[in-house]
Simulated assay, not measured.
Amino acid sequence: MSVYGEDTQDFLKGKHVYGGEYVHRLLKPLQPGDQLPEFSGTVFHRGRESDINIDQLKGNALLLIFIPNTLDNHGKASWNLVIDLCLNKGLDLDIVVITSNSRDTMRAWMRLKANPALRRAYVIPDHCGHIVTQFGLLNPDTCETYSGFFVSDVDGCIQGSSISNKVCGIYPFSSEEAIEFVESSLTPANDTSSEA
């Protein structure tokens, strides 16, 4: 009998729940053909802060950009890319940015540093890592998130994805590459209308 009043053999036969829901696990990163996972959180959009879930964005093509840290050099470069994309009126999709910074950090950053062009983007802080875990962008050894770039169609099906580690920042690296990536992701394979 243990000091806790249980026989070890009986304990081992019982159901064991160790709080796995609180431990971040690296899932297989989402790939083209996968459905967007259900998620919700606080969002900064058009100068307001509110709650959002993925169902509110369904029906539109989405560009989801994961930025591990807003405050480092790679974060700055990634935000410059997001600003360029927000300024592009030819992109017919909603831009969703998920960052690993806290809600308070993002609230202050949006107030003090953010470019007005970002009003077009949905900015979702994911400090606890729930969303990055669902997308498979968490390194289990270091608990750091990877940069990610996902394009989904109006039905919530991922059509393109690009994942890179924090060292090299986000790919695509330029707005031209990003626009090409989005357009090629959302163009059906049998569509030959652009080939003429």
Rank of each mutant, 00 (worst) to 15 (best):
T8W: 13
V23Q: 12
A117C: 06
V97L: 08
W109H: 13
R120N: 06
Y4Q: 10
S193D: 15
P68E: 03
R107L: 11
T8N: 04
S78M: 08
G148W: 10
I124M: 00
F44V: 03
E38P: 00
T192S: 10
K166L: 13
V132T: 07
D153I: 12
T105I: 12
D155F: 00
G20Q: 13
N73L: 13
D153H: 09
C128Y: 15
L93N: 10
T192D: 10
Y146P: 03
Y171P: 04
S147D: 11
L85W: 10
Q31H: 15
S162Q: 12
F181E: 05
N165E: 14
D84T: 06
R120D: 00
V154M: 09
P29G: 00
E180C: 09
P68W: 01
I179F: 08
W79S: 05
P172E: 09
W109E: 08
M106E: 13
I83F: 04
E177D: 15
V43C: 00
T70L: 13
L112Y: 14
N53W: 08
M110G: 10
M106A: 07
N80W: 06
V151K: 12
S161G: 01
K166F: 07
Q159F: 01
R25D: 02
P68T: 02
M106S: 07
G129W: 01
A77T: 06
L62T: 01
G136F: 09
S164W: 11
L36H: 04
T187Y: 08
R48S: 13
D51W: 07
W109C: 05
L81N: 01
S50R: 14
G41K: 01
V3W: 04
F173W: 14
K113N: 11
P172I: 03
N101K: 11
K76V: 08
N115C: 09
E195C: 09
L186D: 02
T99K: 00
A61K: 15
Y122Q: 00
H45D: 02
F66E: 02
G59D: 12
T187P: 00
L63C: 07
V132W: 11
D34Y: 13
V151Q: 13
F135K: 04
F44L: 06
I98E: 04
G33A: 11
L64K: 04
L186N: 02
Q35R: 14
N88T: 07
Q35W: 12
D51G: 15
P140T: 10
C168D: 12
S50P: 11
V3S: 10
